[in-house]
């Protein structure tokens, strides 16, 4: 692995993995605790429509994905706020329509010869330095936004109604969260591709949630796990000449199953405090 670092593409790949890890660890934490994994999947896949648009009209694919996934995220946020019962169906439809649109637009694009697989499964080994800068900027923006609204986002995630009663602008924050998911999707498509984004968003927070005392800790552990997954995945990819995105996901998935196994072996420490509840005394 060390000798691989002499190649610029390898250094870039590791940096891209690191930057994507920060993004996915932070945003994935909110995705998991808010149970919006399905919406995130929808945004990630519908983003393919943005790739189609970009190629068809000949603008930068990043702009295409960014614009389109932000639009899809806004629609999905609106739908899930408005009609909660049927939201999953509509999200599923948008998910499929976005992908279909992308495929058809690419069919219609003359002389199209871009490797479709690289968008579906990522191409971390070909991340140019200019993209790293963009990723760094997006990371910075997201970290700043999340730290500014941290307590609001926590209260929205834990108890939306209570937050609303306390005057937290929950609807605006929900849209903001969706926009940040869209941004993370755009970023991570480079690293693991849009099919596999969901793994980096969900697996580390799922594992971290069990031993974290706060969302901040959960984000921290998730970022660390993501760094571990992307680095080890890259090493497998380099050593055994495997597709990088899929290798990263397999490392993450292995840890995911190990964590579930460990949870089974070590039963929860819950219930230990049991019935020793002190009574409330009035007149204190």
């Amino acid at each position: 692995m060390l000798e691989a670092l002499q190649f610029e593409f390898m250094r870039n790949a590791l940096l891209a993995g690191l930057l994507a890890s920060i993004m996915c660890g932070v945003i994935g934490t909110f995705v998991v605790v808010n149970r919006i994994v399905f919406i995130s999947g929808g945004i990630a896949h519908a983003a393919y429509g943005g790739i189609g648009l970009a190629f068809f009209f000949g603008f930068s694919y990043l702009m295409g994905i960014l614009g389109f996934s932000l639009l899809v995220a806004a629609i999905m946020a609106a739908v899930s706020l408005k009609t909660r019962q049927r939201a999953d169906t509509i999200i599923g439809v948008l998910w499929a329509v976005g992908m279909a649109l992308g495929v058809i637009l690419l069919d219609l694009t003359p002389g199209y010869n871009v490797d479709l697989m690289s968008y579906l499964f990522g191409s971390i080994l070909t991340v140019p330095t200019s993209d790293l800068w963009l990723m760094l900027i997006i990371d910075g923006l997201v970290v700043l936004t999340v730290s500014y609204f941290y307590h609001d986002l926590v209260s929205l995630s834990y108890d939306e109604e209570f937050a609303q009663v306390r005057g937290v602008p929950t609807k605006i924050l929900y849209f903001l969260l969706m926009a940040m998911i869209a941004l993370s999707v755009v970023m991570v498509i480079q690293v693991v591709g849009l099919i596999l984004v969901i793994a980096l968003l969900t697996i580390p927070p799922y594992i971290s949630e069990k031993f974290s005392g706060s969302l901040l800790e959960m984000m921290f552990y998730s970022v660390m796990l993501n760094v571990f997954f992307t680095t080890v995945g890259l090493w497998f990819s380099y050593t055994f000449n495997l597709t990088s995105g899929a290798s990263i996901i397999m490392v993450a998935a292995t840890c995911f199953f190990i964590s579930i196994l460990l949870e089974r072996l070590w039963p929860k420490r819950r219930r230990r405090l049991g019935n020793s509840i002190p009574p409330i005394r009035a007149g204190k």
Binding site: Y148, H151, V154, S155, D159, A163, R166, G167, V168, P169
Partner: peptide
């Protein structure tokens, strides 16, 4: 959370 006054910070 009961001390929230909404709107970031």
């Amino acid at each position: 959370m009961g001390r929230m006054r909404g709107g970031g910070g």
